[in-house]
Design a binder for these strands. Sequence first.
DNA 1: ATCATTGCAAAGCCTTTGCACGCGC
DNA 2: GCGCGTGCAAAGGCTTTGCAATGAT
Lengths: 144, 144
Amino acid sequence: MQHYTRRFQDFIAEKRMKWTQQREAVVHALWTTEEHVTCEELAARLAAQGRRIGLATVYRNLRLLVDAGLAREFHSGGASVRYERYIEDDHHDHLICERCGNTVEFLDEKLESLQEELARRHDFRLTGHKMYLYGICNRCRSSS
Amino acid sequence: MQHYTRRFQDFIAEKRMKWTQQREAVVHALWTTEEHVTCEELAARLAAQGRRIGLATVYRNLRLLVDAGLAREFHSGGASVRYERYIEDDHHDHLICERCGNTVEFLDEKLESLQEELARRHDFRLTGHKMYLYGICNRCRSSS
DNA sequence: ATCATTGCAAAGCCTTTGCACGCGC
DNA sequence: GCGCGTGCAAAGGCTTTGCAATGAT
């Protein structure tokens, strides 16, 4: 069994929900797709494979996949939301206070996806990145 | 006259469009608002000031303001798009090819706004940032 | 057997569009 | 006066929801 199927099953089990053929089909369809797809496109792809699944079900399960950390959403300004399979990693970026030097590490999936979009726009295949945000933290602002 | 009004007027004139009371009201309302607003919120704000302006007109003019470089859009996942006044600057980020060292400088308003959002989330007042994306450029990919 | 999930269709929301009227040029 | 811009209402498109039937445990 594919690792993504297993992870989705675990997530479903943990939430005391039920594992269905549709859920298996949706996670498989998303994870065997390279591009960012809309719900409708994914449903069409499934239909083409003979897996006719209601659009509402696709919507519902893509949302679940996002919750499970197996998909990510893009609201890029187009008409509909797009989804992509997502592999979590432990990468993080930095937010540094210029006054006290305190550093916050954070991970933001919107940032990650935007970076990928930017690289794609310039025809680069992304291999890594570094980002540092500089500012004044809350505590330093109130004590001045 | 406020600089934003002037810039919007210039933009409108350049496009050979017409300057209207509504356009003036919308640019003023957006530029005297700190938060990110939806079209509906902005229309409500205008109505509260006695400037009753059709929702469609607000939509149309906010889009114009984005084109004019005086506003920016946020598709942050919520129900509706939010707008914020925007001051362009010449800041840019970097995309670097790990193989040939070629560097592309770019500026992306979605990235800028996301960075602001991240800083806000951690209660920082943003003063600056550095971002470097690393990847393999198109030319290096095809010549290997 | 029980209760979550599905599928369909209907409803909901945000946004855009069509069109008559009015205003800027 | 001409034509663009506005306002209203209607249409449009994506997403969610209600509900009866189905399927999983």
